[in-house]
Amino acid sequence: MNETLTILQQNLGQALWETFEMVFISGLIGVIFGTIIGLALYYFASPLFSPRPVVNTVVGFIINAIRSFPFLILMVVLIPFAKWVAGDPYTPMGGAVSLTVAAVPFFARLAEGAFAEIDQGVIEAARSTGASFWLIFQEVLFPEALPALIRGIVLTIISLIGYSAMVGTIGAGGIGNLAIQFGYNRYETGVLISVIIILVIIVQVIQWIGDRLAAHFTRA
């Protein structure tokens, strides 16, 4: 028990910070680029805008291809790429690279769905005012899709926290790494359990915040 506390005291703060770093960077980039790609997928599929089935199919194919990689394999395949981008692939920054590559197509599909669910009639009404696409995006697509986008962000962050544990096992650090190194390799069951409890709490809190935010932006 004392040993567990000592290990946690010495490593937990650092591990949490590393996990945060990885999830924050990959989540942020994933949401930004995922939204752009999701919007493009929607734009080129919707008969209300500019349907270009070829563009939609090609982009959709690439996204599906990346998403069909089991994350463990994606991570290993991307080690050279992570090295090129972040210098050392076995750091939180290196780990964030493969997480980002996984997050972008994941969130792109969620964003596409969020836009596609908007009532077509509202968009038709917006188009009939003669508004530009940019104005329609700002004033119609974005506010109407926002609650669904927030739920998508929550889902993405929670998935990334899970994946970040996997990145930890190949040495990128983080809370998953802590659990494996001490809890599994050194039979410190106390550390393992503590990490699980912390993860459960973190996920619950994120979900709660996300639900509150989504509800706040829904006026229906």
């Binding site: 509202v122 009404a125 917006a126 009939s128 005012t129 508004a131 530009s132 119609v140 506010p143 829904t218």
Partner: peptide
Amino acid sequence: KKIGFIFQNFNLINNRTVAQNIAFALTA
């Protein structure tokens, strides 16, 4: 812009106020 359109299902932006819905058309 010279043609107004009203719909069976109203088609208002639900997450925007009445004033904002009209402001949208004005901005457009």
